[in-house]
């Protein structure tokens, strides 16, 4: 028997694509947000509402990841933004190579902000770097206030956490103070937004934050004719 030291990164292929994506986005000064949550937290509704709220201010594009169907991409297009749907056929996360391909399916050079809506899953997507600028976690009130403590990975790495569906707070035992404390234990600098994508409550603060982020990168002169893909 003989032992051979290897010391090789196993996910090197994904990391190489992620680095390439990061460079591609940096060159074009487009912030890219990788949105991660459980299924049913309201990611797509939130993005649709965000697109509507920022209409005329930011040109937004969305890469959608789902196991099957293009229902989400259709919803995004209906809200007025170009969208490309990736079907993972069973895989629980998006990979950086899929994002590299998707860039060219969107009018990328006209975008001020790019969202990637990852496959609904609070665990796996946090392992795979896509080359995004930041990760955003979404937690909805009916999921319960123990999720940041139970699934710390994504909450520790997220630049912002959106607590969605706050319109039904009164009907639940969800404790906002506890959630905020649990998140800040993992990362004191995470921005926390309380929103309801359905009623629009709190959307202004979130959209202002996005605008500031895109501004600090670069705000393009808005095109008068918007692509409706």
């Amino acid at each position: 028997m003989r032992k051979v030291k290897v010391r090789k990164k196993i996910l090197i292929a994904n990391e190489e694509y992620a680095a390439k994506n990061r460079a591609f986005l940096k060159e074009r000064k487009i912030p890219c947000l990788n949105v991660i949550s459980s299924p049913g937290s309201g990611k797509t509704t939130l993005l649709a509402k965000t697109i509507e709220t920022l209409r005329g201010k930011l040109s937004i594009g969305v890469i959608e990841g789902d196991i099957q169907t293009d229902i989400d991409a259709q919803r995004i297009r209906k809200a007025g933004a170009p969208a490309h749907q990736i079907n993972t056929d069973g895989a629980c996360h998006l990979s950086a190579a899929q994002i590299s391909d998707a860039f060219h399916k969107l009018p990328i050079d006209r975008l001020d902000l790019l969202f990637v809506e990852n496959v609904g899953n609070l665990v796996c997507p946090s392992t795979f770097d896509l080359g995004e600028t930041d990760k955003i976690a979404v937690l909805s009130v009916p999921e319960g206030d123990d999720k940041p403590a139970k699934y710390p990975m994504i909450f520790a790495r997220a630049a912002a956490v959106l607590i969605n569906k706050i319109d039904i707070l009164a009907a639940t035992d969800f404790n906002i103070k506890k959630v905020k404390a649990d998140i800040s234990k993992l990362n004191k600098n995470t921005k926390i937004f309380l929103v309801s994508a359905k009623t629009g409550e709190g959307m202004k603060q979130w959209c202002d934050w996005l605008e500031n982020m895109a501004d600090s990168k670069r705000k393009k002169a808005l095109k008068k004719t918007r692509p409706r893909q």
């Binding site: 028997m1 032992k3 196993i10 996910l11």
Partner: peptide, 10 residues
């Protein structure tokens, strides 16, 4: 990171 540290060969 996920690392392949070493391999033992026959």
């Amino acid at each position: 990171p996920l690392l392949l540290e070493e391999i033992t060969f026959e």
